[in-house]
């Protein structure tokens, strides 16, 4: 475990050095990220120009969901999206061989190897939004709420990671997975609104089939001290199940992989 945390540090360092090789690109990416975050914020403002609550959530509370959305979106952009792109390339060129030769988990090596910094805009916009939202409220989270939030948030990250591992693994067969990542992103886009905004089948789908609710709404709810113990435990279960399943799927794919021609 310590080895992997150290390795992640080494990977991020190398990635940062790579990004800094292309200065203009680096700055442009961060700027773009910030711009997108503003767009999300404005869309919420437009909603609240017409109403005072959204799915039972007040303006400031919704902002926490929005913050969670941007923050996790930033993490996806930084840590996950670039690796899926690389993996497709490695499968096509056969350089995945080098990964399989290394005495490290191949899933770790491929899914967290490259970090890009274009998500930093989204990420910091998310953090700022959450801080701003708490400024608009008189509510202050108790220690218990903070611990609960930390747990649910960690599970959310693990769940998102596992979903991306599924998408990445599909590239062994599909070679082009752009459509899959786009599909996930458009479903994830619903995560900027609290899950209670949605009704019936859609809500069920976004909670249990593609667990977007566990990624943005529930962590926000935990922060607000309004998440029950059962949902907290469910988030742990969902993270564990998706993680184990994605790892199995990855290993299955690797077993079937026969490297491209020499």
């Amino acid at each position: 475990m310590v080895k992997y945390i150290k390795l992640l540090g080494v990977f991020i360092r190398a990635s940062l050095l790579t990004e800094l090789e292309y200065r203009a690109n680096f700055i442009a990416q961060i700027f773009l990220g910030l711009l997108w975050a503003v767009v999300v914020w404005v869309s919420v403002l437009i909603f609240f120009a017409h109403t005072t609550t959204l799915g039972g959530w007040e303006y400031a509370q919704v902002l926490i969901v929005v913050g969670m959305f941007s923050l996790i979106n930033g993490l996806i952009e930084c840590m996950l999206a670039p690796n899926v792109k690389r993996l497709i390339e490695m499968v096509r060129l056969g350089t995945l061989d080098f990964v399989l030769l290394k005495p490290v988990s191949s899933q770790f090596m491929t899914t967290l190897r490259y970090t890009r910094f274009n998500g930093i805009g989204d990420f910091s916009a998310g953090v700022l939004t959450i801080i701003y939202a708490f400024g608009q409220m008189t509510y202050r989270p108790s220690l218990e709420a903070i611990v609960q939030f930390a747990c649910v948030f960690l599970m959310a990250c693990l769940t998102v990671y596992s979903i991306w591992v599924f998408i990445a693994t599909a590239s062994f067969w599909l070679v082009k997975v752009n459509n899959l990542t786009e599909l996930f992103r458009s479903i994830y886009d619903t995560g900027r609104f609290p899950i209670t905004t949605f009704q019936g089948g859609v809500r069920f789908f976004l909670t249990y089939v593609m667990p977007i609710a566990f990624i943005t709404t529930f962590p926000a709810q935990a922060f607000l001290g309004k998440l029950d113990a059962a949902t907290t435990l469910t988030s742990v279960a969902i993270a564990a199940i998706t993680f184990i399943a994605s790892n199995r799927f990855w290993n299955f794919a690797i077993r079937n992989y026969s490297s491209a021609s020499s």
Partner: peptide, 8 residues
Amino acid sequence: KQQLMWDL
């Protein structure tokens, strides 16, 4: 095939 990072 190469394992070296191209840009660094």
